[in-house]
Design a protein around this nucleic acid. Structure first.
Lengths: 243, 243
DNA sequence: AAGTGGTCTAGACCACTAT
DNA sequence: TAGTGGTCTAGACCACTTA
């Protein structure tokens, strides 16, 4: 009965009833010293087990109070193929962080097909769920596109769709490319989202094209526990010819 | 200079040169005892710092040898909108795990719109990168659809596209819905992928429809470090009318 | 044989919460 | 005031890699 590390064994004992629903969300777990006594292990072991469950997202630590079974997070589905509506965090309540001009850095410059240091508008907003931020949308757009018009992101009603705004400026967006991945949360984002840096987050790098020219690109960074992406794809037209 | 936990401070010291590229991938980091001495902290602190970097995916621990800057993993982009080719792990080398009939369980039954216990074909394959598995594709399809024909997954050449195979059986797939999310790796998958259970993985739940009827559904489970999803969407047609 | 990472023990202090 | 989680110290043994 040994082979496995003891902390994994303790974690298993707690994980089972949580996943089975025998422990209601919000239930307080035994404290780390209590666990150490009942399973006859050192406190470091119970600590390690509890931190493992926290890292798995099953348990929440409230310092000074205890460990609690996490409430099942509300899952939000981001429909990525309905382009009728607007901002980047669509099913969620939006909290705007404003627009500023910026000199564009390496990766974003490449995505926009512009030189390093080119001026861009950067627009950010948070997606809120139950008052807590769960997604961050950051959009970059060459300032040259709309500078001097009333169609800049700063001049427009927050939440206006890029498609509508740029169409009004005479730029027709006809193609979108999205790259979806997961990476650890980094610093400017983590404080905005009130999540620990290093936590894995879902990332959608989206670029809007007008013909061959990229005209806007954005990052959607979303909590892995709250966010799903939904793609509805139609194959109505005849299958494409093999290239 | 204190406020912050010491282990975070030590981790920062190591993270900076790794992200800047000053420490080449493959470089060995100072051992935990060495780190403890140079920064004048206890070994538990250096240990904590190093484990943090491991959890962030920046560093790899080789027991008995040391901590190493992780080689940049090869990233594979799964194009989810090119339907010309076949299997579920497309840009990767495929390793087939065969087809078996099964009684379908809860969630998958719902996705297929069939009763619990209905017979389905379950087909699995691994996607390999440099000889190591990085993605697992599991597809379910009601046995009733093709039973008795030569168009069952078991009778067809492995890697045949579902669209082609079912089209040959008279079932025209005209719609695809994909739901993308992240969840901890579970047991049957973790041993097939040789990854630790609990590790976050990218999951694509895809369902193929023939009109309103779901005819095939599958899970693509991929290592977060190696897998990206690529969606190329055309907005060529006039924007849809608001519903 | 020496060094390393993984695990473990047995203590400790602090800021915070609950009562 | 007692209990809690977060952090920290100073040791230890084991299996493994490296030389």
């Amino acid at each position: 009965m040994d082979g496995r590390p003891r902390y994994l064994w303790v974690a298993d004992r707690l994980r089972r009833p949580i996943l089975n629903g025998e422990l209601e969300p919000g239930t307080r777990l035994p404290s780390r010293s209590r666990l150490a006594r009942t399973y006859d292990v050192s406190e470091q072991v119970s600590r390690h087990a509890l931190r493992l469950l926290v890292s798995e997202g099953l348990v929440e630590a409230r310092p000074g109070s205890g460990y609690y079974v996490r409430p099942v997070p509300q899952i939000h589905r981001f429909s990525r193929t309905d382009r009728t509506s607007g901002s980047g965090v669509d099913p969620l309540e939006r909290s705007d962080l404003g627009t500023q001009t910026d000199a564009v850095c390496g990766a974003v410059a490449r995505r926009l097909g512009v030189r390093d240091g080119e001026r861009v508008f950067r627009t950010r907003c948070l997606g809120m769920s139950d008052g807590a931020p769960v997604a961050l949308h950051t959009a970059w757009e060459p300032a040259a596109l709309t500078q001097g018009t009333l169609r800049t992101p700063a001049d427009s009603e927050p939440g206006t769709s890029v498609l509508q705004r740029l169409a009004a400026a005479g730029v027709i967006i006809d193609r979108v490319v999205e790259e979806v991945g997961v990476r650890p949360l980094r610093e400017p984002e983590s404080s905005l989202l009130h999540l620990a840096p290093g936590l894995p987050v879902l990332v959608v790098e989206r670029t809007h094209y007008s013909g061959r020219r990229p005209v806007e690109t954005s990052d959607l960074v979303g909590s892995v526990d709250h966010c799903r992406l939904l793609y509805r794809l139609s194959l109505a037209r005849a299958p494409r010819k093999p290239r």
